[in-house]
Amino acid sequence: MKGRISSVHCLHDGFGDTAGAGSASRYTSELAVQVAMKLFSDSNTKPTEIDYLILCTQTPDYLLPTTACLVQSQIGLRSSVGAIDLAGGVLSFVFALALAQGLISSDQARTVMIITADINAPSGSAAALLVVADPGRESADAFAFGSEIDAAVSLDTVLAASGLDWLAHQVVPIAHPGGHQPDQTSSTLPIALSDAVGEKRVSRGDKLVLVGNDLAGSWAGAMVTW
């Protein structure tokens, strides 16, 4: 069984993106709850459908307990879900996709929720998406990783790792490894994806290339079938 991304939603600015001043998110868990609720209402998904929550953040509420656990009870997930935090900044979203695919293909979960959320004053950004088991899916997503390597190499490596005659497909780069932007967070790639979907730049069946690279020279890339 392989998974596919079924929906993606984001908050560009969790501090400003609120109806009343009293509900502004001050902490990562609050931002995560806010974007999760948006996903549930926009995608008509019930919290009880989720089997596993992966929260990508560099700014957890506490050193411990794990922020994903705090989010679990606040968004009404079942007590039989798994919940973990994943660090890694802009790369963490690609890692989360790889972990979600692994959980689904090894039959440990059917619906994985990935939330990215970081508080970086004066703003906060967050995204939420679902990876769901898709019995009709044949081709696996491909992943490639590296460190201390020129970022320009990474895109080629991802394409090579996919083992795909990618010239034959519509390949959409979601975030080119362009420049080292200091404001990159775990939400950078999913927000770019959400924007591409919103602007109808991608269609179902397209191959999406997602590549993130961080200031330390590490990168992570995925070739995902939308």
Binding site: T28, T59, Y62, C69, Q72, V81, G82
Partner: peptide, 22 residues
């Protein structure tokens, strides 16, 4: 035979209260 479980409402029972963001 993996089984998982989470209950964040009990997150206050074991915590490092200082040194985090909140």
């Amino acid at each position: 035979a993996f089984e998982y479980g989470t209950n964040g409402s009990g997150g206050n029972a074991l915590i490092v209260p200082n040194g985090g963001r909140r």
